[in-house]
Simulated scan of single mutants.
Amino acid sequence: MLGLKQIHHIAIIATDYAKSKAFYCDILGFTLQSEFYREERDSWKGDLALNGQYVIELFSFPFPPARPSRPEACGLRHLAFSVDDLDAAVAHLQAHGVTCEAIRVDPFTDKRFTFFNDPDGLPLELYQQ
Rank of each mutant, 00 (worst) to 15 (best):
M1K: 12
L2G: 01
K5D: 14
K5G: 09
Q6F: 00
Q6A: 04
Q6T: 03
I7Y: 10
I7Q: 05
I7E: 10
H8Q: 14
H9V: 10
H9Q: 05
I10P: 05
A11D: 10
I12F: 02
I12V: 10
A14E: 02
A14Y: 00
D16C: 04
Y17W: 12
K19S: 04
A22T: 06
Y24E: 03
C25D: 06
C25W: 03
I27R: 00
G29P: 02
F30K: 00
T31Y: 01
T31R: 12
L32S: 14
Q33G: 02
S34P: 00
S34N: 13
E35K: 11
F36Q: 04
R38G: 03
E40P: 01
D42R: 07
W44C: 01
W44T: 02
L48K: 05
A49I: 05
A49E: 09
G52W: 00
Q53F: 05
Q53A: 08
I56G: 01
I56K: 00
I56P: 01
E57A: 11
S60P: 01
S60G: 08
S60M: 05
F63N: 15
F63E: 14
P64N: 10
P65K: 12
P65G: 01
P65I: 03
P65F: 10
R67S: 14
R67Y: 14
P68K: 13
S69N: 11
R70V: 13
P71R: 14
C74R: 11
G75Y: 12
G75V: 00
R77S: 12
R77F: 15
H78P: 02
F81R: 05
A88F: 02
A88K: 04
V90H: 04
V90S: 03
A91Q: 14
L93E: 06
L93R: 05
Q94E: 15
A95C: 04
A95K: 15
H96R: 02
G97C: 13
G97A: 05
V98I: 15
V98H: 00
A102K: 05
I103H: 06
I103A: 09
R104Q: 15
V105M: 14
V105Q: 14
D106I: 04
D106K: 07
F108L: 15
T109Q: 07
T109M: 00
K111F: 06
K111S: 09
K111D: 07
R112H: 08
T114N: 01
P119K: 12
P119H: 12
D120Y: 07
D120G: 07
P123G: 06
P123R: 11
L124F: 14
L124E: 09
E125Y: 13
Q129V: 15
Q129R: 15
